[in-house]
Simulated assay, not measured.
Amino acid sequence: MAVFEKKLSQKLSIDDTVALTCVIEAAQKSADHMVYSVRIQYGPKPENSWTLQKRYSDFVALDTELKIANIDVQLPPKKVFGNFDREFVAERQQGLQKYIDTILGHPLLANSQAVKKFLSPDNYTINQTEIALQHVSMVFRSENKWDVIESLPDIGWRLRKEYILVKPIDQPKIKEILTWCDYGPDKFMPEKELAAVLRIFPSIQVSSTCFN
């Protein structure tokens, strides 16, 4: 759970392109495990920061999700005995800091859904796949030309972009991949107006002019 110095407004659109930085400030024993205080900074403004309490197992879970990218990032190894030794705790804290620094220094990993959710759970807990399936299914019901087969979560890495396997109703043996993308943080028009503009696009005709 995040402990906010100053909670970000729920109405604030989080810009995915703004970098998140992270510092593991302390480690503290809690019952039978260690808890690491992780401070996250969103952009340059000091007030846009928060602190999360993370266990080593949380980092392991993140590492498991990132292995699909096949990028070598070294997570400090597990230790069966002596987990509370002061020297070991300090060494592991340094190792976890190096691990998260490596991730945030890699464009692909830093912008992945898993990392964003790990560092900013309040802003990245929405199930984008479920939303995409709902939106696409609603459109297909109104047109009655396509059927949704399944989502394809293992394709692509971009935030807010989903891939869905679909088939035409009149040719069920044919399968095609449909891409769906949510509105980004730069959206400034009301959704009704934006939808009206998008409906006009297919009817737009542009004449080409050649210059020698």
Score class of each variant (00 low, 15 high):
residue 1 M to Y: 15
residue 3 V to M: 15
residue 8 L to R: 13
residue 10 Q to R: 14
residue 12 L to G: 01
residue 15 D to Q: 03
residue 15 D to Y: 00
residue 17 T to A: 06
residue 18 V to N: 07
residue 23 V to N: 06
residue 24 I to K: 08
residue 25 E to R: 15
residue 28 Q to D: 11
residue 29 K to T: 09
residue 30 S to E: 06
residue 30 S to N: 09
residue 31 A to E: 10
residue 32 D to T: 12
residue 32 D to M: 13
residue 34 M to W: 07
residue 36 Y to W: 04
residue 40 I to K: 13
residue 45 K to C: 11
residue 46 P to R: 12
residue 47 E to A: 05
residue 47 E to H: 04
residue 50 W to M: 07
residue 52 L to F: 04
residue 53 Q to V: 04
residue 54 K to V: 06
residue 54 K to E: 04
residue 61 A to P: 05
residue 61 A to S: 12
residue 65 E to D: 06
residue 66 L to M: 01
residue 67 K to M: 10
residue 70 N to F: 02
residue 73 V to S: 01
residue 75 L to W: 02
residue 78 K to A: 09
residue 80 V to R: 13
residue 81 F to P: 06
residue 83 N to T: 15
residue 86 R to D: 05
residue 88 F to G: 09
residue 88 F to Q: 10
residue 89 V to W: 00
residue 92 R to P: 01
residue 95 G to N: 00
residue 97 Q to G: 03
residue 99 Y to S: 00
residue 103 I to T: 00
residue 108 L to C: 08
residue 111 N to E: 10
residue 111 N to R: 09
residue 113 Q to P: 04
residue 115 V to C: 05
residue 118 F to N: 09
residue 120 S to T: 08
residue 122 D to Q: 13
residue 122 D to R: 15
residue 125 T to S: 15
residue 125 T to E: 15
residue 129 T to I: 03
residue 131 I to R: 09
residue 131 I to C: 06
residue 131 I to Q: 08
residue 132 A to S: 03
residue 135 H to R: 11
residue 136 V to N: 08
residue 144 N to I: 11
residue 149 I to W: 07
residue 150 E to T: 12
residue 152 L to D: 01
residue 158 R to L: 13
residue 160 R to L: 05
residue 160 R to Q: 08
residue 168 P to A: 03
residue 171 Q to C: 10
residue 172 P to E: 01
residue 174 I to M: 10
residue 175 K to N: 09
residue 176 E to I: 14
residue 177 I to F: 08
residue 178 L to A: 11
residue 178 L to F: 14
residue 179 T to I: 07
residue 181 C to W: 00
residue 181 C to K: 07
residue 187 K to P: 00
residue 188 F to C: 04
residue 191 E to H: 10
residue 191 E to W: 06
residue 192 K to C: 13
residue 193 E to I: 06
residue 193 E to P: 03
residue 194 L to K: 10
residue 195 A to Y: 14
residue 196 A to L: 11
residue 196 A to T: 10
residue 196 A to D: 12
residue 207 S to M: 09
residue 209 T to L: 11
residue 209 T to K: 13
